[in-house]
Amino acid sequence: MYQENCPYCNLHADEEQQIIFENETCYFIQKESEQQILQGSGLIIPKKHKKDVFELSDQEWKDSRELLIAAKELLDRKYSPDGYSVGWNTGRAGGQSIFHAHLHVIPRFKDEPFAGRGIRYLIKQEGNRRN
């Protein structure tokens, strides 16, 4: 599957986008401009266009995990983060803005201003309660 207007189906169209690792079905990518705030941040994406995580095949799940482990080993060596935020945004309400499945891999550091605010932060904010 391929989508002509999808940035993750057309990685080579963006000069800043780098493929760091790949396997049979997935890539681990990093974009230069996104390294300015949290160094090492990247994405694991399927090579075939899949709208979201729920469309991944068993092989894509396996290959995503393989790249997640490889990315962690690289990032641990290069940046020595104090933790990670790892997650899928799915659907507009879930924060997905590019509708090609992608797993965020974000090294976290104890000296960053938002240290300690992980994925669960959203469910602990009284201001986020539904009416």
Rank of each mutant, 00 (worst) to 15 (best):
P113A: 11
K51G: 06
L56A: 04
L74R: 11
I106H: 11
Q35W: 00
Y2T: 05
Y84C: 01
K124S: 14
R92P: 03
G83H: 00
Q35D: 06
F109A: 13
E60A: 01
D14F: 02
A13N: 13
G95E: 06
D52Y: 03
A70W: 10
M1F: 10
G94E: 04
W61M: 08
I29A: 02
Y27L: 05
E15Q: 07
Q39R: 11
L38K: 07
L11C: 03
R120G: 13
W88H: 05
K124M: 11
Q30S: 07
A101Y: 09
C9D: 04
E60D: 01
Q59E: 13
K110R: 15
K50L: 09
Y8K: 00
L11T: 07
L11W: 03
I44H: 03
Y121Q: 14
G118P: 11
I69P: 00
E73T: 08
I45S: 01
G127V: 05
Q35P: 01
Q36L: 14
P113I: 14
G118A: 11
D14K: 02
I29N: 06
W88E: 02
Q96G: 06
A71F: 08
E32A: 14
G127D: 11
I19G: 00
R92A: 15
S97N: 08
T90H: 01
I37P: 02
E112N: 08
A115Q: 02
I119G: 09
I29T: 12
K31L: 09
E16Y: 01
K48D: 14
S97W: 08
F109T: 09
E4H: 04
K50N: 09
Q18C: 12
E126T: 12
K78D: 15
K50T: 14
K47H: 05
K31N: 14
R108P: 12
D76I: 07
I44L: 09
P46H: 00
G42Y: 08
G42T: 09
K50C: 04
E22D: 05
L75I: 14
P81S: 07
E32Q: 13
D111Q: 14
N10T: 02
S57P: 07
I37G: 05
G116C: 08
Y2P: 01
S41H: 11
I123A: 09
K50F: 07
L11P: 02
R77T: 14
L103G: 04
N10S: 02
Y27M: 00
S80H: 13
Q18S: 13
D111W: 10
E55C: 06
E34V: 05
H104Y: 10
N89L: 07
D111C: 05
N89R: 11
E55R: 09
D63A: 00
I119H: 10
Q59A: 12
G127R: 11
F109Y: 15
E32W: 03
I19S: 03
